[in-house]
Simulated assay, not measured.
Amino acid sequence: MPSAFTRRRFLGGSLALTATGLLAACGRGSTPGASGSGAWSFTDDVGATARLDGMPTRVAGLNDAIASLWNYGVTPVASFGYTALDDDVNFAGKDLGKVKQVGRTYGEIDIDALAAAQPQLIVAHAYPVDGEGTIDKEKPLYGFKDLKQQETIASIAPIVAIAMTGTARDVVARTTELASAVGVTGQTLDKHKKDYDAAADRLRAATASGVSAMAIAAYPSDGVHIAKAPDDPALRSYTELGLEYPDPGGDGYYWRQVSWENIGDYRTDVVLYSIRDGLDAEELRKQPTFAKLPAAESGQLYPWEFSSMDYVAQARTLNQLAENLEKARKVT
């Protein structure tokens, strides 16, 4: 399960821009072909460098990645991912008619439809295989079924990947570099960063109560998967802002799988449940052992939103979490 929720730390890819002075002047036209009068390049987090004759104006890619660019004003031409855009909270309020959805199930991408959208750049994410942030280059980037599919899609347009490693602030900063590279102005980014910083301050104040939390994805026949904060950039950022998040233990990466019979051993004041997959709050309370947890008995079950890694989405999520923690109380 699981890779759908994993977020990771920036591995240290570098941004390489030629003719940077031209970027601000290049608009986001709708005609095929990269715009601008100078060469453009971007080195991603797996060490691959995308090169074009000019700044790309037609961007497609993984839902989670294009959501960030769209929040900064870059409307994608095509999308693929874990689910349809209509079912993804990251696209709420967006005009989805502007985007060709070429994949609504993980790994199933209509390559002909993607090619017809004429993207100049395709964006994706890279996930590590362990807690050290190791990216296995022998495996496809997140969103692609296999390397063969990825290579076929790379023949349509170059692919750049942002590594989901470390803390959310690192990943957001890296995504911001990509946004800047495709023409988002510093003024726009600075405005959204102020909102993000204000939301972080609010969450920091909310965590001062000492309320503890754990984030889970639970399934009737598979028990409860408890996320490990150090392995998830968003959760890690919450702990850096003061959230008490007990280590669930276990040797596995990212998740600690716990049976329904043993979930009573994991007691926190608040439980964050995944809204992308798994049981919701009402369904969790129908599980007899889970219903006896302090967080369940006190009604402190709150959504765990898989938000895109940008200032806009992260500010929204930080504010929502802060609001929930502000009304929560110690029950353990």
Rank of each mutant, 00 (worst) to 15 (best):
D45Y: 11
Q150W: 01
L189V: 14
Y106L: 15
L279V: 03
A16M: 10
R9I: 10
T167C: 09
R169F: 11
P294H: 10
E240A: 03
K98M: 06
L235D: 09
P119V: 07
A208K: 15
F144C: 00
R236W: 01
A92M: 02
G278F: 01
A126L: 08
A313W: 02
A227Q: 10
S259K: 07
G242N: 02
A200M: 08
S274Y: 06
L321A: 11
W255C: 00
A281M: 00
K145R: 12
G249P: 10
R9E: 12
A48S: 13
E108F: 05
A295R: 05
V89R: 03
Q101E: 15
G81E: 04
T75K: 12
A16K: 15
P220T: 14
S68E: 12
R9A: 14
D232N: 14
I263R: 07
Q101F: 01
P32M: 12
A328T: 09
R256S: 14
C26I: 13
V224G: 05
K286N: 06
L325I: 08
A65K: 08
G183A: 09
N319V: 01
F144K: 00
D195W: 02
N324D: 15
S274H: 04
Y238A: 08
S30M: 07
V89Q: 08
D136R: 06
A39Y: 07
R329V: 13
A48I: 06
A78S: 13
T239F: 06
T268M: 10
I216N: 05
V160H: 07
R202Q: 13
G29I: 01
S221G: 07
A126K: 05
A291M: 09
D265L: 14
Q300D: 02
L69V: 08
G47Q: 08
P288D: 06
A124H: 03
P233S: 13
V77N: 09
T18G: 03
G166L: 11
V102M: 06
V171T: 13
M1I: 10
M214H: 03
F42A: 04
H125N: 11
A65V: 04
E244C: 01
D64A: 14
S35F: 03
A291V: 03
S237A: 15
D88H: 01
A157C: 08
W304H: 08
R329N: 10
V102R: 05
N262W: 02
R276Y: 07
F144T: 00
V224E: 09
